[in-house]
């Protein structure tokens, strides 16, 4: 049976996206639990968040590599056959599983460029999901605490970006961060031009005109 590489590619892309999303979500949870960025935690507890992260990574890997056992694809006849175009569509047996995903990109596997497109999408989605669930967590924790120092105007102005997410939800942090960005960026650019290397492309273009 001839297999259309584009059909195979679509199948791979959808599986890879889920794989990248779950693994990114897990990695993000481990990283933010270590750095204490509570606005991105999926659970209210540090240890639980970390272990959930490990579980998500393992789930992503296991699901991706076991999927050929229940999803039909070009892995039925094993993966080391020279001509993967003529491979039969079907589900893989346990014995064929390890090599089932090894499909050449010219026959529908995902090449580096496609992976470079799908991985960031999975990672961005993982960040958005973490930020949304983290906002619920922060709100829950807030309602349990009687006083909250981080609502003070000083904290709102100084902490932004990920540092602001340590104690704030994305909804409270984003406007403050973007406001700070708009007021800072001209100064950041100017001081950057001044301190940049003599051979900086931007210093050569903008440095002379500003001086």
């Amino acid at each position: 049976m001839n297999t259309d590489p584009n059909t195979v590619r679509d199948l791979f892309a959808s599986h890879y996206f889920v794989f990248a999303f779950l693994a990114s979500l897990g990695t993000l949870q481990i990283a933010v639990s270590n750095s204490g960025i509570r606005g991105l935690w999926l659970t209210p507890h540090r240890e639980m968040t970390r272990w959930l992260g490990v579980a998500l990574i393992v789930t992503g890997i296991v699901v991706f590599f076991l999927q050929p056992m229940w999803v039909e694809g070009p892995w039925a006849a094993g993966s080391v056959q020279a001509d993967s175009v003529t491979r039969e569509i079907g589900i893989a047996s346990w014995g064929e599983l390890a090599g089932a995903r090894n499909v050449n990109d010219i026959h529908g596997g995902l090449d580096g460029n496609k992976q470079a497109m799908w991985f960031p999408l999975g990672a961005i989605l993982a960040f958005v999901v973490s930020a949304l669930i983290g906002a619920v967590n922060v709100k829950t924790l807030r309602s349990l605490e009687s006083s909250d120092e981080n609502d003070s105007p000083t904290a709102a102005q100084t902490d932004d970006g990920l540092a602001g997410l340590v104690n704030r939800s994305i909804f409270a942090n984003l406007p403050a961060s973007f406001r700070n960005f708009k007021s800072d960026i001209a100064g950041v650019w100017r001081s950057g031009i001044e301190s940049a290397d003599h051979w900086s492309l931007f210093k050569m273009i903008f440095g002379r005109s500003s001086s």
Partner: peptide, 11 residues
């Protein structure tokens, strides 16, 4: 500056 933009987006 790109990094500053990312900070402005809380990322």
């Amino acid at each position: 500056s790109f990094l500053r933009l990312m900070r402005g987006l809380s990322a």
